[in-house]
Design a protein around this nucleic acid. Structure first.
Length: 362
DNA sequence: AGCTAATTGTG
DNA sequence: ACAATTAGC
């Protein structure tokens, strides 16, 4: 046995998890002031106050030839399909960043909402796997020296990631349960049929199903659609956010525990600075607003390829005769909605009502 | 980072 | 009658 000296250094975040605090020493629980503070803190430490880690040549060779890829890859090649969508290299990560910052970032504020457009940077899997550093991304954006709203919106997303890490550091109990304790009494529904329909992209709501299938096929999902499917699981189906967290954990190439847990709690309304529970996405409206022609839906739900834009987000409303004419029978080629939006929404609101008293007295 | 029913404004 | 705005969930 030999002893190896070691030190801890921060990983792929801008600031150490425990650096950003309010003046009174307590952690931020609201995003905007957190990010104002965190960005300023990071800026003041740039560029040369951060010490570089010296490479240690001796130790470098310690693990050489110890790890063989064929031994750590899964036996079945289920992961092969990802090669269609991702090139996992440091070089590709920086190429994507350069392209995004040079060509797309000024449209990000608008384009990011449309899942059929490549309006986002697609960097999350690279960040998660250490092929690009969030500091490099942040600095590249700042070099544009612009107050452009799109650039701000983009760096804001880095901010949410920082916020998630900070929250998990100060409130590690979030990993196990609701940050807002009153949600411990929330009447979640146990329904494995519904949960499986959600996971498989067979809920009967095209925008939800497209997202869930994109996730399973590519290991990634567009952010607006993450909100839509998250809201649907937690509010329309009233299934505990932990089930959604678990599924995303299993499927996402950009999976990161802090982000995943904090964002699921945000969607469910039980997290910090969370979306209020009564803010319920209407999956039909979200589709009509952000995928008007149904391009995204048709890409991932090919059985709806013949449905016209007017019905693409509510195909069950097509007349029977018309369904037959285009050979798309709802209930046979594609499922009927597993819940009715209006009823699910009303039920979610009344379930929320049952714990609401406790919230207002907090 | 929403939705919907109710209300007010317009011709 | 319809559009725009707002309150409340």
């Amino acid at each position: 046995m030999r002893n190896i000296d070691f030190k801890f250094f921060k990983g792929n975040v801008l600031n150490e998890y425990n650096k950003i605090k309010k003046n009174d020493g307590t952690p931020f629980k609201v995003y905007s002031p957190f990010w104002r503070n965190a960005e300023q803190f990071y800026l003041e430490r740039l560029p040369d106050k951060i010490s570089k880690v010296k490479k240690c040549k001796k130790i470098n060779t310690l693990f050489k030839n110890q790890i063989k890829s064929e031994e750590i890859l899964p036996k079945s090649d289920w992961y092969k399909k990802f090669e269609k969508y991702w090139v996992p290299s440091e070089q590709k990560a920086h190429e994507n960043l350069d392209n995004f910052v040079n060509k797309s970032i000024l449209n990000y504020g608008v384009d990011r909402d449309f899942p059929s457009i490549k309006g986002t940077s697609l960097l999350s899997p690279y960040i998660r796997n250490g092929q690009i550093n969030v500091g490099d991304i942040w600095q590249k954006c700042k070099k544009l020296k612009s107050n452009n709203v799109s650039i701000k919106k983009y760096t804001n997303e880095i901010g949410w990631r920082e916020f998630s890490h900070s929250l998990i550091n100060y409130f590690p109990q979030m990993l196990k349960g609701n940050l807002r304790k009153e949600f411990d009494k929330f009447p979640w529904v146990n329904n494995s049929k519904f949960l499986n329909a959600w996971k498989k992209g067979m809920t009967g709501y095209p925008i939800v199903d497209a997202g869930m299938r994109e996730l399973y096929e590519t290991g990634w999902m567009h952010n607006r659609i993450r909100m839509v499917v998250g809201s649907f699981l937690v509010k329309h189906l009233r299934i505990n956010w932990k089930e959604g967290e678990k599924h995303f954990r299993n499927c996402l190439l950009d999976f990161n525990e802090a982000n995943n847990v904090a964002q699921w709690q945000w969607v469910a309304g039980c997290g910090a600075d969370a979306a209020p529970y009564f803010r319920i996405f209407n999956p039909i409206l979200q589709g009509e607003k952000f995928d008007k022609q149904g391009d995204y839906v048709k890409k991932w739900v090919p059985e709806l390829s013949k449905v016209p834009p007017k019905f693409i987000h509510k195909p069950w409303e097509m007349e029977k005769k018309y369904q037959e004419a285009i050979n798309t029978i709802i209930g046979s080629n594609y499922p009927m909605p597993i819940v009715i939006h209006e009823k699910a929404r009303a039920d979610a609101l009344s379930a929320f009502q049952s714990i609401k008293k406790k919230i207002s007295h907090q």
